[in-house]
Simulated scan of single mutants.
Amino acid sequence: MSQPHILLLGAPGAGKGTQSSRIVEAFDVEHVTTGDALRANKDMETEYGTPRSFMEAGELVPDPVVNAIVEEALTSADGFVLDGYPRNLEQAEELDGMTDLDLVAYLNVAEEELVERLTGRRVCSECGTNFHIKFNQPAVQGVCDECGGDLIQRDDDTEETVRERLRVFRENTEPVIEFYRERGQLVEIDGEGTPDEVWGKLKTAIEAAQ
């Protein structure tokens, strides 16, 4: 079976990271995220400068630099699951010229479900292990199973911050979803089941696309 080229779309909390890990394991492809690609190529020269120059200044890396870095990452991968890019319509149009996609999968999860997932997340302050007050509880409330550290709620997991993140996602990325839907490339996956249930649907869609 050939190594697929997959674009995975979804709001924060939709499960892209979890499902991407399963795709990597099942189909022997690379997991390409914008953040990882920038860190791996932070000294790559572009006509706008290196990613490092923007990152060290605390500035957003401009789209042309991000586009160049992502293209480099995709070109060097036999197969991939792309997660976190494109974030806007302009990037989607750039991606169109970089590579051919076998599947564009959108993990569709209702906003209230996303809010519950993200606001209930707790992270160990010592080792960074993730838990959830409903879906993945530690053996002892507030204590990490792995190292015994304190479990905390990250600042960006408060309800106010989560709803703002979702608003930004809708504003920037929903046009991307419509872009692929109008072209008949989008496959919607119900992302509200268990990780195993979602994986079953996603795996079927990937196999059908090859």
Rank of each mutant, 00 (worst) to 15 (best):
M1F: 09
Q3M: 12
G10N: 06
G10H: 02
A14T: 04
G15E: 06
G17A: 08
G17L: 05
R22Y: 00
I23M: 10
V24S: 01
V24L: 00
D28T: 15
V29H: 06
H31K: 14
H31A: 13
T34M: 12
A37I: 15
L38F: 08
L38V: 12
L38E: 11
R39F: 02
R39I: 01
A40V: 02
K42L: 14
D43S: 09
M44K: 15
T46D: 02
Y48N: 11
Y48F: 14
G49Y: 06
T50H: 04
P51D: 09
S53Q: 08
E56Q: 11
A57I: 05
E59R: 13
V61G: 11
P64C: 12
P64T: 15
P64N: 13
V65E: 07
A68K: 15
V70I: 14
A77D: 03
V81K: 10
D83F: 11
G84V: 14
Y85P: 10
P86D: 08
A92F: 01
A92K: 00
A92L: 01
E93L: 02
D96A: 02
G97H: 09
L101M: 07
L101G: 05
V104D: 09
L107C: 12
N108M: 10
E112H: 11
V115N: 03
V115S: 06
R117L: 00
R117F: 01
L118R: 05
G120F: 00
R122A: 04
V123T: 05
C124Y: 00
C127H: 03
G128S: 04
N130I: 13
F131E: 03
H132V: 05
Q137S: 01
P138Y: 10
Q141H: 13
Q141G: 09
G142V: 05
C144N: 07
D145L: 00
E146M: 03
G149Y: 03
D150R: 15
L151N: 05
I152C: 06
Q153F: 02
Q153G: 01
E159G: 05
V162F: 00
E164P: 10
E171G: 07
E171R: 09
V176I: 01
E178D: 03
Y180Q: 01
Q185M: 12
Q185F: 07
E188D: 08
D190N: 06
T194D: 13
D196R: 09
D196W: 08
E197Q: 11
V198P: 02
W199H: 07
L202E: 11
Q210K: 09
Q210S: 10
